[in-house]
Amino acid sequence: MPPWSAAPAGRLDEHVIDSDALRGNPLGDPHERPLEVYVPPGYDEEPERRYPSVYVIQGYTGQLPMWHNRAPWRPTFPELADRLFARGEAPPVIVVYVDAWTSVGGSQFLDSPGTGRYHTYLCEEVVSFVDARYRTLASRDHRAISGKSSGGYGAMVTPMLRPDVFGALATHAGDALFDVCYRPHFPKVARQLRDSYDGSVEAFLADFRGRIAGTRETDFALIEQYGYAAAYSADADGTVRLPFDDTGDVIPEVWERWLARDPVLMAARPDHAEALRSMRAIWIDAGTRDEYHLDFGAVAFRRAVEAAGVADDDVHFELFDAGHRAIEYRYPLALAWLAERLTP
């Protein structure tokens, strides 16, 4: 693999969306967002042909330009996707790269008074923007969503909440089984908050926002838990409630608000189970050495999908030998599988 990019066989278009849903969001983050849309080889030569679409969302702290960050000896995911279609290894689809970054690291792709209306932005504005400008098969039966980590979380919950928009999903090490992936971190974060900021979230935020991020060892752990709380447990007035007290023990009434967003528990509710049964394809995978134990989350979500009544033929489940990071080589596998299922 050369250490630089090559000309793609398809085309990657850059756009900016002026979002009404994100205008005036509580964090003051930009309402104009970048969007990239990839069209496969042959798109311009076949003006009558329409294509399925796959929306790709990022993990916590992800910003759209990061799709093009290059690791040594490894192609980026956009390059891997282009190679997939250039070699004819999957039916061609339109791939949409979505930005949902926030100044607390992410949105979990939910509507929240703590971060803004990112679920509405994705489902209402981004999808309609793409369908209006590209020759998509503009139907949920030909539209999928895919992501890793927090993006994998968004890929699980978005179709459960809006099965009219997305009819297939792929989750790579997505946040799930919150008692296992989130709760064990609470005592450590409570100790860091106590020792560095006298237990004050406000003091941490003022310090974090007043200097270069990442220059203190505690930065990522603290902002990550605050970012999740901003998505899962913000009050109507925007007040963000952490789910643990000064001892690291959970605050039951706040923790219940988090659990209400756990994909494993969501899948058991009748309306969400019905949404899952309507999916044309569900891909679930994770590394067996995942540092956040999201392999257990993947197993639990697979079992929840089965309990919801989804046919085995509509599900691909796999655990593979890897940790949480550097698994971008898995994304084209799911993309090809979804493309087969979405193509008429």
Rank of each mutant, 00 (worst) to 15 (best):
Pro3Tyr: 07
Ala7Cys: 14
Arg11Asn: 06
Asp13Trp: 06
Glu14His: 15
Glu14Cys: 13
Ile17Thr: 05
Ile17Asp: 03
Leu22Tyr: 06
Arg23Gln: 14
Pro26Phe: 10
Pro26Trp: 08
Leu27Trp: 08
Leu27Ser: 07
Glu32Ile: 08
Glu45Asn: 05
Glu45Leu: 14
Glu46Leu: 12
Arg50Met: 03
Arg50Glu: 08
Tyr51Lys: 06
Ser53Glu: 11
Ile57Met: 10
Pro65Glu: 04
Pro65Thr: 03
Pro65Arg: 09
Met66Asn: 13
Arg70Pro: 12
Arg74Ser: 13
Pro75Ala: 15
Pro75Arg: 11
Thr76Ala: 02
Pro78Phe: 04
Ala81Asp: 07
Ala81Trp: 10
Arg83Asn: 07
Ala86Lys: 02
Arg87Met: 06
Arg87Ser: 13
Ala90Ile: 01
Pro92His: 03
Val93Pro: 06
Ile94Leu: 10
Val96Met: 02
Ser103Asp: 09
Gly105Leu: 03
Gly105Pro: 01
Gly106Ile: 06
Gln108Asn: 11
Ser112Trp: 01
Pro113Met: 15
Gly114His: 08
Thr120Cys: 10
Leu122Ile: 09
Cys123Asp: 06
Glu124Arg: 09
Val126Pro: 01
Val126Arg: 01
Val130Ser: 00
Asp131Lys: 14
Tyr134Lys: 11
Arg135His: 04
Arg135Ala: 06
Leu137Gln: 10
Ser139Tyr: 07
His142Ile: 03
Arg143Thr: 09
Ser146Ile: 05
Ser146Glu: 14
Lys148Pro: 08
Gly152Gln: 09
Gly152Asp: 11
Ala155His: 07
Thr158Phe: 12
Pro159Asn: 15
Arg162Phe: 06
Asp164Ile: 01
Phe166Met: 05
Thr171Asn: 13
His172Gly: 05
Gly174Trp: 01
Asp175Cys: 08
Leu177Val: 05
Tyr182His: 14
Arg183Ala: 15
Pro184Phe: 12
His185Arg: 12
Val189Ser: 04
Leu193Gly: 02
Leu193Trp: 00
Arg194Phe: 08
Ser196Gln: 15
Asp198Met: 02
Glu202Arg: 09
Ala203Leu: 04
Asp207Ile: 05
Arg209Tyr: 09
Arg209Gly: 13
Arg209His: 11
Gly214Leu: 11
Gly214Cys: 14
Arg216Lys: 14
Arg216Ser: 02
Asp219Ala: 07
Asp219Met: 05
Leu222Gln: 00
Ile223Glu: 08
Glu224Arg: 13
Glu224Ala: 11
Tyr226Asp: 07
Tyr226Met: 09
Tyr228Gln: 15
Ser233Arg: 00
Gly238Phe: 01
Thr239Asn: 09
Thr239Asp: 14
Val240Leu: 01
Arg241Leu: 08
Val250Asp: 08
Pro252Asn: 09
Pro252Trp: 02
Trp255Ile: 02
Trp255Phe: 00
Glu256Thr: 07
Arg261Cys: 14
Asp262Gly: 03
Ala267Gly: 10
Ala268Cys: 05
Arg269Met: 11
Leu276Pro: 00
Ala281Trp: 09
Ile282Gln: 07
Ile284Trp: 03
Ala286Ser: 15
Thr288Asn: 11
Thr288Ile: 10
Arg289Cys: 06
Phe296Leu: 15
Val299Ala: 13
Glu306Trp: 08
Glu306Ser: 15
Ala308Leu: 01
Ala308Glu: 00
Val315Thr: 14
Phe317Trp: 10
Glu318Val: 13
Glu318Gln: 15
Asp321Ile: 01
Ile327Trp: 06
Tyr329Gln: 11
Pro332Leu: 02
Leu335Cys: 08
